[in-house]
């Protein structure tokens, strides 16, 4: 499935789509979006890249093994629930900082949880896609 136009286009599309996926992730708490959708959008971007360029270059772009991404995502999600335990609240109770970061919004443990979901979903989909497209 080689097409020069598509190959060139996806080269440009990848960063844009990744940016879009992060945007979806960050705005998820207040507008439609979130870790699942963001992760899937990012995964779609990489999958597109993998189809047009082949698996090897995409692995290079991704830099880390998707399985590792999955693990990191899970750990981030698990750790995001710990601050609540320190405050003697049930595990995973959301904790928010009082101040805002410009253009991202409030900082809180649910955001980290969502980031964990994002990474895990991305890692999961890419693991599958790489496995199936590779051979």
């Amino acid at each position: 499935m080689r097409s020069n136009i598509l190959t060139t286009a996806t080269g440009f599309l990848l960063p844009l789509l990744l940016l879009f996926s992060v945007f979806l992730l960050l705005r998820g708490h207040n507008e439609p979006g979130g870790g699942f959708v963001g992760g899937l959008a990012a995964a779609s971007a990489f999958s597109l890249h993998a189809i047009t360029h082949g698996v090897r270059p995409t692995r290079a772009v991704l830099r880390v093994q998707p399985r590792l991404l999955m693990g990191i995502g899970l750990w981030v999600a698990i750790l995001s629930g710990l601050p609540a335990l320190l405050l003697d609240l049930p595990y995973l109770t959301g904790q928010w900082a009082g101040w805002k970061i410009p253009s991202i919004g409030k900082l809180g443990t649910p955001l980290f949880f969502d980031i964990g979901v994002y990474l895990a979903v991305l890692g999961m989909v890419m693991t599958i896609v790489f496995e199936l497209v590779e051979d």
């Binding site: 998820g28 507008e31 979130g34 995973l92 649910p110 949880f113 969502d114 979901v117």
Partner: peptide, 10 residues
């Protein structure tokens, strides 16, 4: 403010 996401992550 996004109820669906709040249910999911919180």
């Amino acid at each position: 403010r996004n109820l669906v996401n709040v249910i999911l992550v919180d």
